[in-house]
Amino acid sequence: MQLCKVHIEGFTADEKEVLDMMFFHPYDKLEEYDGKLIMNYGSGEVCPGTNDFKEDCRNCRYVPFVVRKILRRQENFIFGEKPEA
């Protein structure tokens, strides 16, 4: 089990629709800032970056496939809370 708070960017409108469909439970609502999204998956614990299968976010099985697909295109990873403005 690995709970994550990864920032997602560069998604298409179609993908955004799927993401909204995916994260609708009260405790994993997506947070939006500057056109990016923060995933609050599960209770929102911050993941150290690799899961217990030693997989990084691009390959993390705990992350729904649609998120992995976006992450694979994405260059930077940011974890954790929204950066201070």
Partner: peptide, 14 residues
């Protein structure tokens, strides 16, 4: 309920 530690649970429990 187990792996994601109860999405809908109130904060106190989580």
């Amino acid at each position: 309920n187990l792996a994601t530690r109860t999405h809908a649970a109130p904060n106190s429990v989580v």
